[in-house]
Every structure is written in C-alpha cells, then in structure tokens.
Design a binder for these strands. Sequence first.
DNA 1: CTGAAAGCGCTTACAG
DNA 2: CTGAAAGCGCTTACAG
Lengths: 336, 336
Amino acid sequence: MSKVTSLDVAERAGVSQSAVSRVFTPGASASAKTVEKVKKAAEELGYRPNVLARAMVSGKSRIIGLVVAYLENQFYPVALELLSNALQARGYHILIFTAPNSTDGVDSVIADLMDYQVDGIIAASASMSSPLAKRADAAGIPVVLFNRAQEGDGFSNVTSANVTGARKVTEFLIETGHERIAHIAGWQGSSTGRDRRRGFEEALKAANQAAFAIVDGMYRRDVAMECARQLISGTRPDAIFVGNDHMAFAVLDVLHDAGIAAGRDISIVGFDDVPQASWASYDLTTYRQPVNRMVEATVELLLDQIEAGKTHPRKIEIEGELILRGSVRQLQGAAP
Amino acid sequence: MSKVTSLDVAERAGVSQSAVSRVFTPGASASAKTVEKVKKAAEELGYRPNVLARAMVSGKSRIIGLVVAYLENQFYPVALELLSNALQARGYHILIFTAPNSTDGVDSVIADLMDYQVDGIIAASASMSSPLAKRADAAGIPVVLFNRAQEGDGFSNVTSANVTGARKVTEFLIETGHERIAHIAGWQGSSTGRDRRRGFEEALKAANQAAFAIVDGMYRRDVAMECARQLISGTRPDAIFVGNDHMAFAVLDVLHDAGIAAGRDISIVGFDDVPQASWASYDLTTYRQPVNRMVEATVELLLDQIEAGKTHPRKIEIEGELILRGSVRQLQGAAP
DNA sequence: CTGAAAGCGCTTACAG
DNA sequence: CTGAAAGCGCTTACAG
C-alpha cells in the first residue's frame, strides 16, 4: 500500500512539489540538475504520476470510450485491436463498454461513459439518440460513429462505401451471368444494412432484373441460417448476396449440410472480408471493408477534434474492393 | 462546455454541496425532502457525478485493467464480452490494453495500467514478471491471470484443467484405435501450451505408445499450417491433437486443400470449443474450456480481493469436457 | 439530517 | 528556472 506521491519525491529530492510535477509534465521547464535529482528520487521510490489526478486538473483524461456490440462478428475484434493499438501509440487508452443493440441501451451506456470524463467516444456498430448527441456536444465530447452512419449533422462517422460496394457486388453477379439473385440483407435497423440493400436494388434495377428475394438476416447467424434454408427449399436462387461475412459463413454452412456446393451449384458473396473469409474451408468472395484505413480515419478524426479542437463533424466514406474467391461460379457467358 | 458540478446543483436546490454529494452516494443519509430537491435540480441541470473526482478521494476508480492479446483467436473476444458484461453488472468498467506477447511488453503495459489507479487487473493469455507482480502487490492492486497459470504464490489465476483435458483427448484417440498420434502443441512459452503437451505425453506413456511427432505451433495460424503440411508430407499420422481450436482450423484448411478428409482419412481434435468449432464447415471435435465459468470465477476472485480485501491469491482450475463432433473417425476396434 | 472544512494528487498561473 | 498557492470536483469525518 505504498502510494508514492509527488510530495514524497519532492522531499527526497530536496525540491518543491511543483518541480517534481514539471519534470513529469512534457514540455514544462526544469533545469538539468533538477531533472536528474527528481528522476533519481522517483526511481528509488517507484513513483509514477497519478493519471486520475492529472486528468482532474487538466480536464484531459486521455481515455477514449468505446462502445461495441457484435463481438462474435470477427470484424469487430479486429477493429478493436487496431483501434487500441493506434490509440495506445498516441497515449490514449480505451474504456470499453459492451452494448446491447438497441438505441436505448446504447444511450445509457454512453451516459455512463461520459461520467468517466472520457476525452472522446467511438461508437462501433451502434447509433445514438439525438438528445444524447446533444449532451455529448454540450459537454464538449466528440463522438465518432464507426461503421455506422447517421442522419443529421451532429455526427461524425466513418464507413466504407456501402451503397457503391453492394452495387459492385451485384453488378459482378449480373455480369457473370446470374439471373436469380437473392439478398439476405443486413439488419434493416442499421445504416449499413439499409445502404447495402440499396446498392443491391439499384444495380438490379439498372440491369432490368428483379430480385429473386430480399430478406432481413438481422446480422444474426441463426436468422441467416433460417433465411438460407428457406431460400434453397423451392426453386433455388443462383446467387445470394449476403449482408456481411458473418452471415455468409452461416449460409455456407447450411449449403454444406444440404450438399450444395458454393461456387458450383450456387454463388455466395459476403461483405467485410474478415480474416476467416480467406480460410480454405470458406473461401468466400466478398467486398472488403478496409478496416485498417477505417480505423486510421476514425482515430485521426477523433484526435483532431480533441486536440485541435476542430469540433466540426465530418462524414468519411472509404472505398473498398471486391475480393474474388471460390464461392462464386464464373459462368463467363449468360445462361439461357 | 457545460460541466455541471455538485456546487451548481447545490445552489439551485438551495442546499449545501455536501448534501448533493450525499444524495448521489449510495448508503449516505439524506432526508426525503433533500433527496427530492436535489434530484430535481440535478435533473434540470443534467448533472452527473464526476467519476474521476470520486475516484480521487475515495481511492476506488471502479476501473479494471484488462490486458489481452490473441484477439484473432475467437476465444478471447468471447471472454472479453463476458468479462465486460459481468463487470458492468457490478458497476465496474474495463480499461483495455492490447499487449504484445512478450513478458517485457506485458510488463510495460501493466505499469501503464497502474497509473490509471485501476482497482484490479486481469491479464488474459499473458504472464508478468515477478518484480512487476510485487509492485502491483505493494500498490494493493490484485491481479488475476486468465487462462494462464504462473508459478509462485504471488499470483491468482483461473484456467481450465489443461493437463487433464489433454490427457482425456489423447485417451479418447487411443481408445478409438489411433496409433500414430501427433501433437501440434500450443506455444511452449505459455503454461497452457506446456500443460496440454504434458497431458498428451502422459496419456501416451500410460498406453505404452510413442508420439508420432510433437511440434510447437506457437498458437499461430501460419505456423500451424506449416506444421500440418510437414506432418502430411510423408508417412501420415492417423490423428493430430492440436493445441487450440484456432490452430486446428488452420490444420483443417490445409487438409481441405490437400483433399484429405478429416473424420475419415485422419482425425483432428482441438482445444477450447470456440463457437466456430461447431460450425458445419469445421465440425471440430474439441475439449471445451468452459469460458463462462472461467469468467465468473475470474470476476468473483478479483472482486473478492478488491471489495472484501481478501488479498490471498488463489489458483482456480475448472473442469472442461470433451465435445464429440465429426472431425474424428470412430474406428471402434483397433487397427492392425 | 446537515453544513463548513479538509483533503485526494496533481497542474498551472503568479511572483520572484 | 523555481516555490507557494489556488483549484480540479468530489467524499467524509466533524460539529451541530
């Protein structure tokens, strides 16, 4: 129960407490002699500044609140690790809150977060209510939505080009001769779910083709499996564009059990390009969300607002790319 | 930039600042009338106590430091989510630090963690040096190692029964008639890697059988794939016990590409039972580490030490179970 | 039950 | 460059 304070160090070094503080404050002035004496005493005593006390007086906690859900979708652990590394490198740390997927839940979680005097908030795959956004704004706490867009100009957000991406996926399926294309959509309560669906519909419309079916997979494995079973029970689609990789794996598993070979009997495309998508057993064609660039943009956006005081919210959209793998059959020409 | 403080609320409610504090301190005494006035004023002003200030004076931050690595192994995101939920339910929150896998890296990360005055530390899949353990102990910060054991009585840890589990896996392979059993071990620099290997060797020895091969897969996908390729290149083992599921998937992918059917041509067993293990494309027989019970034990152990002041470290080992799926061929009798 | 006051461990003007 | 002092927003004995 030591609890060595700056006062202890000051005493031992024979200087004032302010001097000790200055030695540990980047950019503060202290003579070489003072620095040396203080460092020595601090070392001997095992002193380290109390971050919380510093946060109290400086008003900067160097804590970023992160709200996450859907950790079972590999996209998020990957993003979490990248975010944490990037933030750590800049001297920030993440206070993590796991959230229920309802707006209500997210709101209460973010309110909790603000009590910790976080310097900023990243909400991954979650949306927040307008009143809460106002509260955060009033408290001067910047918020960035990660992988989710939200109407209104109170929000900064970083997403991939969901509409365009989905359109490209669909155009690719059309070009490779598919004619009965179904869509197991991402949760229609989320912007990504809606945007990807829109891209799908636009591409189909432009090609004068009708959707074989559109169902909401809710971003849930169990729901996606049920959707897949339904889709293959009667006249079968020749391709399914699935709203994210996590659900696409579920679909591939259903096909596997039904003895239907993806890439030969039917084509499957996902969205995300999580690491698993490249694993041989799935080998999933998918639209890559460039998670590293999304993370960079998020961190930059947030720290700009925190450090440079740029409070103007921005909406950043990052281009992805179609990754071709074995789950799509290449018909070359058109079918009858 | 509001920053409403208890003083503002006190003014508006016509009471002292102490009174406001008491209303927001569980267990403090205040008359019904005071409570009402204060709550009303707080509501109108949008007041919420500053957790950091509270932490400063009370000496309790209600922050738990979590050190994690290996987030690409699904076991850890799952554990993280469970830990976060359990801790949130008890009024604690997680400050997360992603760690390099070396002891050095972990040490510096834990030192950072202590600067935040965390009430306790959970180190997942990581070990720490003795000096640092002493420091934490001196600062009165309890540490629990999750899924990793460490010699010496300065550490609390929670693991599954790794030796026993590995022994059971191996006995099962022997009983089902396998005679050329290889082991792609978990990283031999970790307790789990060593313990599982030990269980493997013990079971083999008891059956008077020699290991077909033992190699260190380092808990890395790329290394495990390379090991698998080597193992199937000459005379092939009839079974491989892989140190964890994450590596087992890599092995199954290699077999898949080589056209070797797991469960028919060769038997594969993993360790963990992550959600993916039950997915149809892998259908992996594995030894389940009961992550929910491990998390419960970890939280209980930590909070006991924090709240009840039970500083006595404990080592908890939780029994798992063998989960039979399709990746093992059931020979019934013995082979020639 | 309630208010005045001290103090948690720092940073940061303010004089020297 | 350096020290004395104020103050960050709370909790908690201490008197009443």
